[in-house]
């Protein structure tokens, strides 16, 4: 089995709000034989719309510090969050430019005894799925989700800006659909397939309206659940359904899973060990209906 060593970049949302996603991911890494180490010193990536909106230079400095730490003490980074993925990847990209501001930031990071950030890879859980599926992961799959219609929500920052993220086509992504098919399930395409979850829109009602439109469209396409690669999108759809119900009385009842949770189930994790009952939209029926 191909051995790989990676450093976990935990971010904030997963360890501090959704540790059940971390639990599933750790089970997954262990089961496929990828060694993932934890190192000290990381902070928030930082988050790519509010902290970045407050100050680009500051955002870049904090991101550069995180990259520098990984370079000094660890190796290639693995993240479970589109926000962390986009911040770290975009920062890495920015550090290769010759902007004067960037030079200043690099100088500051170096002054804290860290190397110039840029020489390590930043991987998303979804990259791991696509890179290791054939050689490793497919052979570890024990359970299938035969007959389930799965709506993938990619989340904007996995796909865009495509010239930096380089994950898949920004409006016609297919990589993750192949994974869903390999699990015996059907990836459903729906109207607004690559649309945003709306999370970053400040006005909460409008933000939820964006989520509603997507959930509605998934439902119309016959989806049994939503699978996401990002804790922010997860929150927007899972907790979001509770808010939408309260504010508009609309009920979708679409369970939401992070890709790591779907994979942990397929790798025969005991569903009761995964903390799935912490989800706001119940997942238990989905699991008992399709997992076999």
């Amino acid at each position: 089995m191909a051995q790989k060593e990676l450093t976990l970049f935990p971010g904030c949302m997963i360890p501090l709000r959704y540790p059940q996603i971390e639990k599933a991911a750790r089970f997954f890494f262990r089961t496929i034989g990828v060694e993932v180490s934890d190192i000290e010193g990381f902070t928030c990536c930082p988050e790519p719309w509010n902290v970045k909106g407050a100050g680009l230079t500051e955002w870049l400095t904090i991101a550069g510090r995180n990259l520098g730490i990984a370079q000094k003490h660890g190796g290639d980074l693995i993240t479970l969050c589109n926000g962390c993925y986009s911040t770290l990847k975009e920062a890495k990209h920015a550090f290769s430019s010759d902007e004067r501001t960037v030079e200043e930031v690099i100088k500051r990071i170096k002054s804290t005894d860290l190397p110039k950030p840029g020489d390590i890879r930043v991987l998303h859980f979804a990259d791991l799925l696509s890179e290791l599926w054939e050689p490793v992961i497919s052979q570890c799959v024990k359970k299938r989700l035969e007959g389930a219609n799965i709506a993938i929500h990619h989340g904007c920052h996995l796909l865009r800006p495509a010239d930096v993220m380089k994950f898949d086509d920004p409006f016609d992504p297919e990589v993750l659909e192949r994974i869903i098919e390999s699990l015996g399930a059907t990836p459903v395409r729906y109207r607004g397939y690559t649309d945003c979850c709306g999370r970053a829109i400040l006005h909460r009602d409008k933000s939820l309206d964006v989520a509603s439109a997507k959930l509605d469209s998934m439902k119309q396409a016959g989806a049994d659940c939503v699978v996401v690669p990002c804790p922010a999108c997860f929150e927007q759809f899972d907790l979001g359904q509770v808010e939408i119900k309260r504010k508009t009385k609309r009920v979708f009842d679409l369970p939401v899973l992070h890709f790591s949770q779907l994979l942990a189930l397929a790798l025969e994790a005991d569903p009761s060990s995964l903390g799935l009952d912490y989800h706001r939209v119940p997942v238990v029926d989905l699991v008992s209906k399709f997992l076999s």
Partner: peptide, 12 residues
């Protein structure tokens, strides 16, 4: 401007 979803559709 704070209502921008940062979705990068416009960028693409």
């Amino acid at each position: 401007i704070w209502q921008c979803a940062t979705c990068y559709n416009c960028y693409e």
